[in-house]
């Protein structure tokens, strides 16, 4: 089960993910996304993968949903600390064309 912590700064919210990011994290991620998107004055949403062990295609789908919703609200989404297996999965899906990946 994945845990998500929210870090709020001026104009930016970071979702710090922890654990295995797959379909079972759906509700969790949805709640965290809602909160981030509804934060007043938010211009940028970061998704921090430092402590993610694994992500699957439904996780990619959830990122796409976040991207779409953010796009509609003029908010930039950045994927942070993508290394190892996370980076591999994102690369295979060519997500660098869709997100800013740091």
């Amino acid at each position: 089960m994945m845990k998500i912590a929210l870090e709020k700064k001026e104009h930016s919210v970071t979702l710090i993910l922890n654990g295995r990011f797959d379909f079972s994290s759906h509700r969790e991620f949805r709640h965290a996304s809602d909160e981030a998107l509804q934060t007043p004055g938010v211009k940028e949403i970061g998704v921090d993968f430092k402590s993610v062990d694994y992500l699957d295609s439904s996780a990619l789908g959830m990122l796409l949903l976040l991207r779409e919703r953010s796009h509609n609200a003029n908010i930039q989404v950045t994927l942070l600390n993508c290394t190892g297996i996370v980076r591999q999965v994102l690369d295979v899906a060519n997500f660098q064309r869709l997100f800013t990946i740091n």
Partner: peptide, 11 residues
Amino acid sequence: WQATHPPLGII
């Protein structure tokens, strides 16, 4: 042949 494109249905 590595994946050079995102999956179908995104772009």
